[in-house]
Design a binder for these strands. Sequence first.
DNA 1: TGTAATCTGTGATGTTTGTCACACAACAAA
DNA 2: TTTGTTGTGTGACAAACATCACAGATTACA
Lengths: 187, 187
Amino acid sequence: MQDIFREHIEKVIPLTDEEFAFVFSHFSYQRYKKRQYLIREDDHVEHAYFVVSGLLKLEYTDLSAKRHIVSFAMEDWWETDFMAYFNGTKATMSLQCIEDTDVLCLSLADYHKLCSGLKKMERFFLKKSNSGHIASQQRILSFLTSNAKERYDQLLQQYPSLFQRVPKTLLAAYLGISRETLSRLSY
Amino acid sequence: MQDIFREHIEKVIPLTDEEFAFVFSHFSYQRYKKRQYLIREDDHVEHAYFVVSGLLKLEYTDLSAKRHIVSFAMEDWWETDFMAYFNGTKATMSLQCIEDTDVLCLSLADYHKLCSGLKKMERFFLKKSNSGHIASQQRILSFLTSNAKERYDQLLQQYPSLFQRVPKTLLAAYLGISRETLSRLSY
DNA sequence: TGTAATCTGTGATGTTTGTCACACAACAAA
DNA sequence: TTTGTTGTGTGACAAACATCACAGATTACA
């Protein structure tokens, strides 16, 4: 598990053994069961999570109680309600397990300690944040340019494994279409 | 103009005069006229831009030649085709003036020099990137939760000045609806 | 100053997608 | 097993939105 995590970081910045030990010491390890919540709406958001194995959904519930999936988080992803995490505000989204999931947890205090203790990590998080921003922009573009069927195809092409791992109802909630429409797409 | 820029940075991290001079030395100043391009599709993307004054649009043209606005960039915003900028790939989007616009330009080489020369700036860019990511997620959420009229209202509430400054055709291209539909919304 | 390009509104019409309703299968928990 | 919950497909209908067409107004610029 440390290996996966170390490799993940070293894809961006090389680390000595001591440096990695320092980095790793800021995290705690947690296992969650399917359907368990890591974050509930209105919670104080303690941690950002690195997904070691499993699958999470970041979900927003609107005024009419409809649920929308902002993001899936699979192996090798970082996830949390970032707005609440960084600003210390209450969670507007929930983070819940679709499968049993193992994560590494990083508190905001430890995040800051980590960044000041090892400047390389600031670059690491900058890189991650940049890629996240770019990925979000791509998702926005797919809303602008594509209809339901096209967005569905793009999603399957990008993350083929999702098709096996999550119910179609959730894929619909991610794509912004009704489950009925999604059901009628596959011809 | 330096003042605006310095204030913008000092909202996040305080700087001494020497530090600001160091930061500023990495930028070049440019003025662009309405309709001029800062980046064209397939260009090599030389710079990221800080908008001192004016208004830009970041635009993507799809296969059927329809134009979609990924983002407006007004005073105090950073903009470029970030994917192309960071990865050194060719631009997939264009960046064009809606009004006469003054910008500060930062090459990727200077960006890296700046970050290594003054570690504070890495934190600055991390903060900016995080907010950008959060903003994109909000935009995704508005696609998931809201219809055309609601998205339009949200946009006007967030950036009332856009209503005065940009033609409705462009607002429609940002909201992902046809200009005709937008025209029929305001009742 | 004149000509072209852009911007905007609006009608008519068709397509896409959502909503409601129902049925049935798969699965989980007691 | 039984019973509830979740997931999926499908028909009928309504709502949202796109497209095409046209017209008048405004703006760019040579």
